[in-house]
Amino acid sequence: MADRDPGIDQPTDLGDLLRRLRRRADLSQRELAELAGVPQPTVARIESGRAADARFRTVERLVRAAGGDLRVDLAGDVPGERPHSGLPAAVPHDELRDEAGRRYPAHLDVWEVREPRDWPGAWWAEWYNLPPERWPRPVPLATYELNRVYRDRRRRTEQVRGAVVVRRVSGAALPATSWRFVAELPGGELVGELRAHEQSPHLRWGGDERPGEREVVLDGVLVAAEHRRLGIGRRLVEALVAQLDRAGIRTARALTEQHGIGFLLSCGFRVTAPRPAALRLERPVSGERRPPR
């Protein structure tokens, strides 16, 4: 007897299916109801399981309005045949409930609030570091963003965060002392880059060069503006450090200012005692006497 798919005899949870479809189409219950020509309370009853005897025509209109395709699979016991299983991805926050025990909207992105800055309603969180007892109001268990532009941007950033690949660039076109890493999306789009070069410590201190003594100077870490604050810069630095460990190089140096200081400190760099002096040579650009040629 042929093996059976374990999901064949399990009834489809129509409410769960409809929530998945709504999330994929980014539609609220009201928006889906308007597209399908069905009352919004009907959608709510189906998703909550209170409309177990929903009409086939109603279900068909809702599924098609959400971009799905309703089909009946009669594979039966024919060997080798299995039902079609093309369900949309599950709603990731389906287990979360609000203070009243209700589910959060399926089409939104819902996340837990662990501290005030996780909550868009905490307008004071970015500027004040207040203890919990001094918060102007209590924070919710979870939250979401109603603005579709922000929501789409958030989903896009999460996709980028999971898809970015960091690799080292090497080849005949680069000198042997070059350390270059790039962060790319699957299609080859460049979203970040790290460049560094290797030098001998004796060039800074003078004296004889010691065999095997090497260090790297970090020239810069760049990340596309729309993809910042996703950890891409940190991943580039971590890739460099991993390669340095394999090469037996213990020291990496960098000069930076402003936001770059906090970034490198978070990556493990430490401020050193010697402080460079900023110098400038400015030559007049006028009709005065010019230096001899």
Rank of each mutant, 00 (worst) to 15 (best):
A122Q: 08
Q199F: 15
L236E: 03
G248W: 09
G260S: 06
N147V: 12
G206E: 01
A33D: 11
G212E: 06
G68H: 00
L130P: 01
G171P: 09
R235D: 06
A277Q: 10
R228P: 07
L185A: 03
R64C: 01
L146T: 10
P276L: 10
F263H: 01
E81D: 12
T272D: 10
A25Y: 03
R134K: 11
R234V: 02
H197C: 05
D13A: 09
R103L: 13
E145S: 08
G207A: 13
R61S: 10
A239H: 08
P284K: 12
E112C: 08
L240I: 03
E257L: 13
E257R: 12
V191R: 01
S286N: 15
I249R: 05
E193N: 06
D13K: 05
E209C: 11
A142T: 11
G206F: 00
S85A: 13
E158D: 12
R103Q: 11
A51N: 11
E145R: 13
R24A: 14
G206S: 02
G80Q: 07
L62T: 01
W127S: 13
C267A: 08
E184K: 00
A273G: 09
A225Q: 04
W179H: 14
P140I: 01
E115N: 02
L27T: 02
I261M: 07
G162P: 01
P138G: 12
A44D: 05
D69S: 14
P186F: 05
L230R: 01
W119I: 00
G101R: 04
H227E: 08
S170R: 13
R161M: 03
A125Y: 00
E34Q: 12
E145D: 09
D3G: 05
G260Y: 04
L146H: 14
G187S: 08
T42A: 15
P201C: 01
P6Y: 14
R30K: 05
F181Y: 15
V160R: 00
D13G: 04
R214N: 03
D219V: 07
Q29I: 06
R61H: 03
R23P: 06
L62Q: 02
T42M: 10
V38Y: 05
G7P: 00
Y128M: 15
E133V: 07
E31V: 00
V139N: 03
R114S: 08
L190Y: 04
L265G: 06
A54K: 08
A247R: 08
R117L: 05
R290C: 09
V165F: 03
E189Q: 14
H197I: 11
R22E: 07
A277R: 10
R246F: 00
R234G: 09
H227I: 04
D5W: 12
R168W: 00
A90F: 04
W119L: 00
T157W: 05
P274F: 13
P116H: 02
P276M: 02
L35G: 07
R214Y: 01
A183H: 05
R161F: 07
E145L: 15
R19T: 02
R253M: 13
R180N: 14
N129D: 15
A100E: 14
V164D: 06
D16W: 09
H93Y: 10
D9G: 10
